[in-house]
Amino acid sequence: MNFDWNVIWTHRGALWDGALMTVGLTVLTMLLAVPGGIFLALMRLSSNKLLSSASLAFVEFFRNLPLILVIYWAFYVMPIAFDVQFSALTTALVALVLNVSAYNAETFRAGINSIRKGQMEAALAMGMSRRQAMFKVVIPQAARRILPVLASTWISLFKDTSLVSVIAVSELAYTSMQIRAQTFRVLEMLTAMAAIYWLMGYPQAKLVDWIHKKYGVKE
């Protein structure tokens, strides 16, 4: 059997664009899903029963579905529900943001709840307003606990962007598999795809470990 590894070099431009799209999707999704998660967490913690059950239902629903199914569903249902044709990229972004927001909401909620009640009470007793107590006492401490979890979610998201290849968003996985189909260089292209993901993902995994070590909570 002969392999032709030149195929990777000749298609370097497309692979580069695919890798950029993967990174772009990850960054954009996280930028939208962090506010989304905060919003859902605040809804969940509010004293309004309706808001908190709506947030709970949303979070439980999207945490209990395979992401690939949410992507397909968004692809077929969004155009009918809104009567507009969305680009594959928009659809992918919506599906990813829905999924990651649900996870982020749990992260923020757990982070805020992990700060003992006594601290809030102590701050109030010292004459701080509820707002001051939240922003000066609770959130700075919660942030340290939230950061490592967000970092783990980030790397899952980075990998999950590969799933949007099923609706033809030209990120790294889709691009590689397209080149494979055009050139019939199956082993070369699939190995290149895995190698590029590895090159991008491995340092991120190590960085996440470092963040966990630096900020992780020791019990």
């Binding site: 790397i155 990998k159 962007t161 590969s162 799933l163 993901y197 590895w198």
Partner: peptide, 19 residues
Amino acid sequence: VDTMRAIPILVVLVWIYFA
């Protein structure tokens, strides 16, 4: 372990089945 944390499951599946 770190390699598996870095590579998407989709890529692992496709590689094992096709490559």
